[in-house]
């Protein structure tokens, strides 16, 4: 009974628009053949490839950058712990458009980094840091890093320290303890962290739209373009359905392996 308002709200403002959009746009004139031609078109295939590639790259970067931070957090208390958490939480809750803008200011041709490097005499021409894949990966890694750190931290916090002591007591060196005991024990966190980052990556829009170059078109951007620019609702619906299906399948996997309450690191 008490859940009724929430589900009613979800049904009317979320599920109904989606269902209406898909049925109306997909089954308008043209039918199934057009659907196949949309999926097989060059632009769409390229966008799917680019989306996968960028998302994998971002997931790898976020994992590599985030693992040591989470490890540090899991083993610290007091002021240092609070300070590091502060540095992760503040960007996490800052508007994505503001975070993206900040990186554009830093990475642009006449941006902060290029100017500093030039005035230091380290480079002559400005480095192309923005409006390409590098820009997208930097921006998305920055936005998604907190999800990974918070997920990993939750797993690492529950690792029994005695297992590590036992391993070193049995003669394992520092590296072996980490590689053979700690890393496998944190596997669960790695998997769910990577999954949630990948899920969020493939649907990303704001950061790649602002920081990418003309050839870096991700699926979400293509969907937006076909609505805003070419008014091609059918293509938008086909691509949306595809992206939605992939997202939901991955979410189902995530659902099976993770405690959902950890989703936002709350």
């Amino acid at each position: 009974m008490l859940m009724l308002p929430a589900f009613a709200m979800l049904a009317f403002v979320f599920v109904l628009p989606l269902a209406w959009f898909f049925t109306q746009a997909l089954f308008a004139e043209g039918g199934i053949q057009q659907i196949a031609s949309v999926i097989a078109s060059r632009a769409v295939l390229q966008a799917i490839l680019a989306t996968n590639w960028i998302s994998l790259l971002v997931t790898a970067c976020v994992l590599l950058a985030g693992y040591p931070i989470a490890y540090y957090l899991a083993n610290r208390r007091g002021l240092r712990f609070t300070l590091v958490v502060f540095c992760i939480i503040v960007p996490y809750f800052t508007s994505i458009i503001v975070r993206t803008y900040s990186w554009m200011v830093l990475l642009g041709r006449a941006g902060v980094i290029n100017r500093l490097l030039q005035s230091a005499g380290l480079i002559e021409a400005p480095l192309p840091l923005l409006y390409n894949k590098l820009g997208i990966v930097i921006g998305m890694t920055y936005v998604l890093l907190p999800y990974m750190v918070l997920t990993l931290f939750a797993t690492m916090k529950s690792i029994d320290r005695n297992l590590l002591l036992a391993a070193s007591g049995l003669g394992a060196g520092g590296f072996a303890v980490f590689w053979r005991v700690y890393l496998p024990l944190s596997r669960h966190g790695i998997l769910s962290g990577a999954l949630i980052v990948f899920i969020l990556s493939i649907g990303f829009f704001i950061t790649p739209a602002l920081m990418g170059g003309p050839s870096d078109v991700m699926v979400a951007m293509l969907i937006e373009r076909s609505v805003e620019i070419t008014l091609d609702w059918k293509s938008a619906a086909v691509m949306s359905l595809f992206l939605l299906a992939v997202t939901l399948v991955l979410y189902a996997v995530y659902y099976r392996i993770t405690d959902l309450r950890r989703l936002m690191g709350a």
Binding site: F21, F204, F205
Partner: peptide, 20 residues
């Protein structure tokens, strides 16, 4: 199910909401 709105890519949600 209640958490779905953060999982479904916002572009899709937004376009569907706009359509309606």
């Amino acid at each position: 199910l209640l958490l779905l709105p953060v999982i479904v890519p916002t572009v899709i949600t937004a376009i569907a909401m706009y359509f309606l």
